[in-house]
Write a protein that binds this DNA or RNA. Sequence first.
RNA 1: CGGGGAGUAGCGCAGCUCGGUUAGCGCGUCUGUUUUGGGAACAGAAGGUCGAGAGUUCAAAUCUCUCCUCCCCGACCA
Length: 417
Amino acid sequence: MRWSKFFIPTLKETPVGTEAVSHQLLLRAGLVQMLISGVYCYLPLGLKVLRQIEKIINEEMNAVGARELFLSCLQPMDLWKKTGRDETLKDVMIKFKDKKGRAMCLGPTHEEVITDLVKNHIQSYKQLPVVFYQIQTKFRDEMRPRFGIVRACEFIMKDAYSFDQDKEGLQKNYDLMYEAYKKIFTRCGLDVVIVGADSGAMGGDVSHEFMVPAEIGEDQVFCCSACGNALGINEADEKTVCPACKKEKFKKTPAIEIGHIFQLGTKYSKALDVSFVDDKGKKQTVIMGCYGIGVSRLIATIIEKNNDEAGIMWPKEVTPFDIEILPLQVSDKDVMGAAEKYYEIFMKNGIDVLMDDRDESPGRKFKDSDLIGIPIKIVIGKRTLAQNKVEIKNRRTGETVEVGLDAVQPKIQEMIG
RNA sequence: CGGGGAGUAGCGCAGCUCGGUUAGCGCGUCUGUUUUGGGAACAGAAGGUCGAGAGUUCAAAUCUCUCCUCCCCGACCA
């Protein structure tokens, strides 16, 4: 992709009314734009990051046998009355009446819809288990949206739902999801702390939260500063020595919740009457689990944990582009010729490359490059090109190497791995 | 919803206390010329319902009232 054909409106200065670093960088790097408080539009670069994360999620969900579907976000209130959550979630629901006078809402979550959907298709134990997931926009009329897309009124969530015939089946799917979540977050370049948690308005018994310790976190975890071992909220005080490594005491640390999984049991299946006939011909209620990841929040969290004074430093698997080519003098035929050559080569080899083909000063290009945080940049300038060399720079480490013109491709391949 | 801050050009700001030409500065944008290794220089240009409405006044960005929006702190959540 050529910068001039893309759309990356970078900002030199920090926008007013932003506190969180991730919020500032999301705006400055031209990833998102606010429409109203808690409602954000994704610009092309931000969308590209979102797609990268979706790709990781899709792969890991498929790996544990979850089927992707896409539920409606426009939902009838009648359905919510059946589970009683029209009351429990009334403060966050965005409700209205349609032209026919039907009470509707924009889905704050999808347990009711998926359960209602599955109900019509499950009759026998032979059809279980089944696991579905989707990546969807959720709507919650938050009292106070915060920190850009960390807490928004319209946000993107991956939600999965498992349906089993017994508790053992649920536990199995729960464990699979638990492990899949660890993989997803690791691939996103994050270290998570996993804590047992209250299931709150979701209901059910067992639940785990996936937390990332961070300054702007709205939650708190007790974790060992040496080994990361964590206890559930309020289960420890700061004087307790970590039972795992016995080195450090637990510390109360603010954290961002990016995932939450629940063993729901029969709360929804009972209310919506989802049953099946077991192998003895007896009618049973389906046992459910649900599993959420705040995808948009995940983007903010990744930025929160991967930045420096100059801007974002994308982890390898979520970066919007693999490499960036910076021709420093666009008017110079040799410089631009070399840039075009590498651009073509990398595109042909399936490496996603952004080329800053704008006729801007080198200073501007370097600053923008650091800001948007592509992991590897190839700097092509008159000075080095005169010696038949170009410069390859690692955004995160700042490490710079000058390589001969023929060594560029192998070096990049080596760095990308 | 309670408490605190803020709204002036795309972005960042000054002006407001003490009302008075055509509302200004930096960045960005457009034109031209010169530049080109860490946010270049010069010349010219465009861009504003001063958040909105009402009021006071000969005169309001500035004073008064009402409303709207945004940010931060608290109760809820991915």
